[in-house]
Each structure stands twice: as structure tokens, then as C-alpha cells.
Design a protein around this nucleic acid. Structure first.
Ligand SMILES: [Mn+2]
Ligand SMILES: [Mn+2]
Ligand SMILES: [Zn+2]
Ligand SMILES: [Zn+2]
Lengths: 146, 146
DNA sequence: GCGACAAATGAAAACGACTTTCATTTTCAA
DNA sequence: TTGAAAATGAAAGTCGTTTTCATTTGTCGC
């Protein structure tokens, strides 16, 4: 870890160590604020921007990548050996993962057919998770007239 | 059109008519600002918020849906008979479409396997379009140290 | 046609996640 | 040990989106 950082020319600070460690202790799909809160429990002098910058750094060194669902919050997802897709529950915002092996080939071909250099992809299912389906909707957040 | 609106209980105003018409005259994947500019050419007294609200309305009545790539700009995409995926060029921000017939079944199954009620999905390929691939990168937007 | 009244409009302000700035502190290679 | 480069924290800035609010307008029953 320290090695990886120093190798790539980054300095190792106490804040950085704590942030990196905390990131991997949290589950997957971490938001800046979640990590910020977690880190603060250990050292409440760490600034939000430091957490943010280190999350970016974690991505830069290839240990995570940004996930952008449509809800205006960037999540940071540890990189996995195999690529995966996301199931996003619109109600509780839970994020599950699923295998996309059978899809990557199709995507590669689609890129090829469009003379497109594929650098990455995103496969996402929106809907309701098992728990949220049980509870009837009540809200209807569509209903705002504006 | 007017019928659709009145049927669903919305009023038909001159602004609304112009905005709706202009939206369908523009191509696909329209941003609020693009439509705002277009509309202004015809009536420069129309406010940005009116355009924004009517774009939301167009979605509400099912004629379009929001597309959120990770670039912080919401685009509005006319609804198509068959669902489609997007090829997004990170350089010129162009957005191509491709067929996802062969993917929807896989997604439906993934949802099923996760006890997830599928309500929608998003399939997106990021990369470089044919034109942009030709021009070497020069920039390296990764390089910011912060 | 004539109100009544809810809905729509436009300008401006508010929002909020993200990003940058800057003065200061810290790391680390020489 | 020391100096240059990088990192930090607080604060301010950015920017697309969303809301507020006073005013205007469309629609419906009369
Ligand atoms: Mn994930
Ligand atoms: Mn499209
Ligand atoms: Zn849920
Ligand atoms: Zn391009």
C-alpha cells in the first residue's frame, strides 16, 4: 500500500493512510460523505477536501473507480477482478452487483460496429429491491407539478 | 399533442407549444440549454425555468426520458419504440445509439435472480468515436495533481 | 362573454455536490 | 539536515439543477 503510493510518486501522510484504510473497511460504493464521516471518527481534524482528493487518488492508482448512477451522488467502488453491473433500488438507494460476462462481448461488438474505441462501459438496472417491493409506494415522487 | 396534454390535465400555453415543438425539431439527447437557446430564437421572452419545467413535463407524459451519463449534464432523449444503449465519446461528447435487444433478456434474468423488480436499465459504452480517435490525445486530463 | 381559480410563467434566489484556491504544514530525496 | 515539491484544511467558487414568489394566463362553469 505505502509501497504502491511511493512507487507512483505519492507521499504517505497519516491522513492518507487513515483515509485509504477506512475506505477499504467500508463496504462497496462509498460516497465522499460516508468516508468523511467514517474518517472523522478516528481523526476529526481531517478536512473534507482531503478525503475527496484521496478518493480521487485511490481511483488514480487503480484501486477504485467512480460510479455514477443518476442520483447526483458519486460513489467510489473498489475495482473488481471481473467487471460487474449494478442493480439500483430507487427507493432505498441500495446498490447490488451482478455478473456481466455474457454482456461484455455484445458491447465489444457494438463498439466495433460503430467504429468506437471501447474504454469502459456501464450496465445498470433500476428498480425495486426485494425489501422495498413489499412496502407499497405511498409517496409517488413523480407527482410534483412545479 | 394538445390533446395529450389536456387529457392529462395540463394546460396548453404558447410557451409550452413552442417548447414541445422545438424539442422534437432538435435531434436526440437535448440538454436544457440547447433547447433554451433554440426556443429563444423564436421567443426571447421565455425563461429558462419554463424550458426546464416543460422538459420535465415531456418526460412525465412519456415522450422523453432523462439520460445521465457521468458528465454532469442531463440530456433529454425522445422515447423510442425499442430500448437502446449509448456510445459516449469522452472527447467530443457525441452520443451514438446502439441496439440492446440481445442484452435485455440477460438483464431481465439478472433482475430475477436478485429478486429485483426491473423498472428500467441503462447500457452505456464509453470511449472514443471514430473522428476523435484520429486526433492524438495531447491533453491527458488525468494529470491534475490537486 | 364573464369571472373564478388553479396552473403556468419568468426572474431571481437557493441548493448542493463537487472542485479549486491559498496559506501553511509535512514528506522525503539528496 | 534541508529545500523543493506535495499534501493539508478552511474557505470560497463553480455550475447545473431546482425552488420560490409575484404575476399572468388558460380553462371551465355559468
Ligand atoms: Mn459495484
Ligand atoms: Mn438515446
Ligand atoms: Zn430498496
Ligand atoms: Zn468524439
Amino acid at each position: 500500500m505505502k509501497e504502491l503510493l511511493r512507487t507512483k510518486g505519492f507521499k504517505v501522510t497519516p491522513q492518507r493512510e487513515l483515509i485509504f484504510r477506512s475506505f477499504f473497511e467500508l463496504g462497496r460504493h462509498v460516497t465522499v460523505d460516508e468516508l468523511y464521516q467514517k474518517v472523522r471518527e478516528k481523526d476529526n481534524s481531517i478536512g473534507y477536501s482531503t478525503v475527496w482528493r484521496n478518493l480521487k487518488l485511490i481511483c488514480r492508482v487503480g484501486l477504485a473507480e467512480e460510479v455514477n448512477i443518476g442520483d447526483g451522488l458519486t460513489r467510489y467502488d473498489r475495482t473488481t477482478a471481473a467487471p460487474h453491473g449494478h442493480l439500483f433500488c430507487r427507493r432505498c438507494k441500495k446498490l447490488l452487483e451482478f455478473n456481466v460476462e455474457r454482456i461484455v462481448g455484445i458491447l465489444a461488438q457494438a463498439a466495433r460496429e460503430n467504429s468506437f474505441t471501447l474504454e469502459g462501459f456501464k450496465v445498470e438496472i433500476q428498480g425495486l429491491c426485494e425489501d422495498c417491493r413489499r412496502v407499497p409506494d405511498r409517496e409517488c415522487d413523480q407527482g410534483k407539478a412545479n
